[in-house]
Nucleic acid binder design. Structure first.
Lengths: 203, 203
DNA sequence: CCTGTATCAGACTAATCAGTCTGTTGTATC
DNA sequence: GATACAACAGACTGATTAGTCTGATACAGG
C-alpha cells in the first residue's frame, strides 16, 4: 500500500470548513484553502473530484458531527428519570454547551443553505438527515413528557422539536450579526423557559 | 435635469436582491445581474461605486422593508385592547403572512451574514438597526402583557422578543433546506402557542 | 532491487470576474 | 438650438478562478 493520504484529506476538510463557515463557499477559493492548509493543487484534486465534491464531503462530515452533538444531549437527558426532567436536562445541556462558543462560532449549514447552487439532491438529503434526526429524537422526548403531564392541546411535538433546530440556526445568525456569542445562550435559555412553562405551569 | 436614472437603479436592486437571496453575494456576478435586468456595465457602475457598494444599498433597502413589516404587525396588534391579546394578534399577523410564502422565499440577512467579507461597520449597523428595532417593539408589547398578568419569573422580555427574530431567520433556513415554505408557518404557530401558554396558562 | 500505485507538487490554461474607459444619448436650462 | 451634465452602452483589461497535466516521491509486494 502506498502513502496514506487521510491526514492530508482531513487537513483540507478542516481548513475548508473553517474558511467556508467564515466567508461562504463561493467566496472561499481552492487556492485559499491550499494556502491555509499548506497543501497543493495536486493534493486537493487527488482527494476531491471538484470543488463541489468538497462541499458534499464537508456537509456529510458536518452532519455526522451534528448528530453526535444530538446524542450527547440525549445522554445528558438519560440521567433524569422523569420525562419532563429529561426534556429540561436535554435543553440544559445545550444551554451549558453554548457557554463555550466564541464570536467566531458558526454553522456550516448556514453557508450551504444560503447558496442554492450547493443544494443538490445529495446535500439536501444530508440536511434532511440532520433535521429529521433532531426532530425524531426531540419529539420522542416531548411526547413522553406530554404523556406524563396529560397535555393535549399543546404544540405538535414534531414542530416543537423543529423549533430547537430553528433556534440553533437563527441564533447562529444573530450571533454573527451582533458579533457576540451571547444571543445563543440567551435564546436557548428562553426556549427552555418556554418549554418549562408549557410542561409545568398548566392548571 | 438630465435623464432620470431611478428606475434603472431600482431595477438593478430588485434583480440583485433576488439573485443574492438565491445564490449568495459572492456567487452572484455583476454580469449575471446585468443579464437578468437587461442593463449594462456602464449603468451598474454609474449607480454603484463597486459591487460592495451594491451590498450596502441592498441591506439598507431590505432593513427598511423589514421594519415596515414590523410596523404592519404592530398595526394589527393595535386592533386589540388587552395587552395579552395584542401580543397574540401581533404574532398571529405573521402566522397569516407566512401563508403567502413560497419555497423560493428567502431573507437577504442570511446571505449577508453568511459572508464575513460583507460584515463591515456599515452593514453591521444596518443589521443592528433591524434586530434592535424588532427587539424594542416586541419587548414593549411583552412587558405590557407581563404587567397585565402579573408575571414575574417569565423570560426576559428582550430575549423573548429576540426569539421571534431568531425564529424568522432559522425558519427561512429550514424552509430552504427542506424545499418548502411550511416550516415557517409551523414555527410561528408553535412560538405563538408557547407565548400563549406563558401568558395565559399560569396558575 | 524492481515495479506498481497512491500521494502529492506545481506550472499551466481557459473562463470568468470586478472594474475602467471612451463614447453616445437623452433632457432640462438658457 | 446650443450647452451642460446625468444616464447610459459596451469594448477592454488585469487579476483571479477552478480545473488539467506532467512528473516526482514514497512505500508495499514480489
Amino acid at each position: 500500500m502506498p502513502k496514506d493520504g487521510k491526514p492530508t484529506r482531513e487537513r483540507l476538510l478542516e481548513t475548508a470548513e473553517r474558511l467556508v463557515q467564515r466567508n461562504g463557499f463561493a467566496a472561499t477559493s481552492v487556492d485559499a484553502i491550499l494556502a491555509e492548509s499548506n497543501s497543493s493543487k495536486g493534493a486537493f484534486f487527488h482527494h476531491f473530484a471538484s470543488k463541489r465534491a468538497l462541499a458534499s464531503a464537508l456537509v456529510e462530515r458536518y452532519v455526522d458531527a451534528d448528530l453526535n452533538m444530538l446524542r450527547a444531549g440525549l445522554d445528558a437527558a438519560e440521567a433524569e428519570a422523569d420525562p419532563v426532567a429529561k426534556v429540561l436536562a436535554f435543553l440544559g445541556f445545550y444551554e451549558e454547551w453554548s457557554g463555550d462558543l466564541t464570536a467566531e462560532s458558526s454553522c456550516l449549514y448556514i453557508a450551504v443553505i444560503s447558496e442554492r447552487d450547493l443544494l443538490d439532491d445529495e446535500t439536501a438529503t444530508q440536511l434532511e438527515r440532520a433535521i429529521l434526526g433532531w426532530r425524531t429524537a426531540v419529539a420522542d422526548l416531548l411526547r413522553k413528557a406530554y404523556a406524563a403531564r396529560g397535555l393535549i392541546d399543546a404544540p405538535d411535538p414534531d414542530d416543537l422539536a423543529d423549533q430547537l433546530f430553528v433556534i440553533f440556526e437563527g441564533s447562529y445568525l444573530v450571533c454573527r450579526a451582533l458579533g457576540s456569542p451571547e444571543p445563543m445562550r440567551k435564546q436557548l435559555r428562553v426556549f427552555r423557559q418556554l418549554v418549562e412553562s408549557l410542561l409545568t405551569d398548566r392548571r
